[in-house]
Design a protein around this nucleic acid. Structure first.
Lengths: 203, 203
DNA sequence: AAATATAATGAACAGTGTTTAGTAAAGTCA
DNA sequence: TGACTTTACTAAACACTGTTCATTATATTT
């Protein structure tokens, strides 16, 4: 029964090809130009064909989100391996911000766009990568607390404080609101703000 | 020459009507349904007419942003008048978050959407309301610092820390990423996180 | 070779922002 | 009042969007 196996493989290959082209378009032309029709012409198939491999556009965006998390995770690898918990947090923060500023389209899909979440709730799955990342941050906060590097408090709140600040900074920069109130020195301003936060949480 | 005055007045009235209906649609049907065509049918004019009163959709969104800032400013009035600088910051933060969670569409237009900013850069104007709000926050931080309620540091960085955290929290909630990592107690979680931040900045 | 199962598509639906040429109404002036 | 001009408005088109479905083409099996 090698034939049906080949067919299955070919189906998988076209699915991969769709995702690859979607990724290319996202990087080169941005989220606004990531349309079913653009993907279709890129893979030289009709738009309707894409719906034989994905139930809707949300599913494609969801897959792109997963790819984004893999990219980000690999970029943060060095930070994850830091022995000192506070240094670990500092490097994760810096890496997170750097990723967000360098890959705004990926970041948007991962942390802002409603589509991947809609896909998740539709399929009753969970936000695996995100939970993993957040839990790691919570654990690191707990570690810092056990070393008396910060005052006793709910580590989940500290983690959320850290996350929301860097998320807020990336989004304010992305949406051009930051440059509206502070013309000069965008990147270093973000760096210094995060450092200011770390100074006030950890010792 | 009362005739041309009446005409001018009538033009202004239709402009106002367009904005009023745009506001209604934004509130009742959300940003996704805020289309030129929907506004046009609501005011019982053709879509093309709207372009006689606004150069493009961005300009309408810009005007809605201004309305949003007026709404927010009036809601924050009580907070602005607090005598204690730290309490002032606390109430501004709470009000900011409450506004963002209660009026997600307004919030999006004011702090996330690229359209109003595109309109600004096109017209070489500045983000008046936003700058005003941020500068007020900076001044309040300076006041708190002069009262020795927080350690000596750049007040603009403290203000940005405060802003990015609440902005991040509102956006994480809005984009459903928060409920992905913390199922229970969304609103109070946000409150407690902000409180945790205030505790670590001010004394 | 004929029958069947699978894959791919053309065309349509309902929607988007925006432009342009043409029409209808209102104001101006002889 | 009638002719002319200015202003206000709109129908229709352009180039897009996601999605569905009946139909066609291809590949596999009998």
């Amino acid at each position: 029964m090698g034939i049906s196996e080949r067919r299955e493989r070919e189906k998988q290959e076209l699915r991969e090809k769709i995702l690859e082209k979607a990724k290319e378009i996202l990087i080169k032309e941005g989220q606004d130009n990531l349309s079913i029709r653009n993907i279709a012409t890129a893979i030289e198939y009709s738009p309707a064909t894409i719906y034989l491999y994905f139930q809707d556009k949300d599913e494609i965006v969801y897959e792109l989100m997963e790819m984004g998390f893999e990219r980000m995770t690999s970029e943060l690898q060095g930070a994850f391996e830091m022995t000192d918990p506070v240094e670990r947090i500092r490097h994760i923060g810096q890496g997170y911000i750097a990723f967000g500023l360098k890959n705004p389209e990926w970041y948007d899909i991962m942390f802002n766009a409603p589509q991947p979440i809609q896909h998740l709730t539709k399929c009753q799955e969970e936000w695996g990568f995100g939970i993993q990342l957040f839990d790691f941050l919570v654990n690191t906060c707990e570690e810092a607390m056990s070393q008396d590097r910060t005052r006793k408090q709910d580590p989940r709140l500290v983690a959320l404080h850290l996350w929301s600040t860097v998320h807020g900074l990336v989004n304010l920069s992305r949406s051009q609101r930051l440059e509206m109130v502070e013309q000069n020195n965008n990147d270093s301003l973000i760096q210094r703000t995060m450092e200011s936060m770390l100074q006030c949480i950890f010792r």
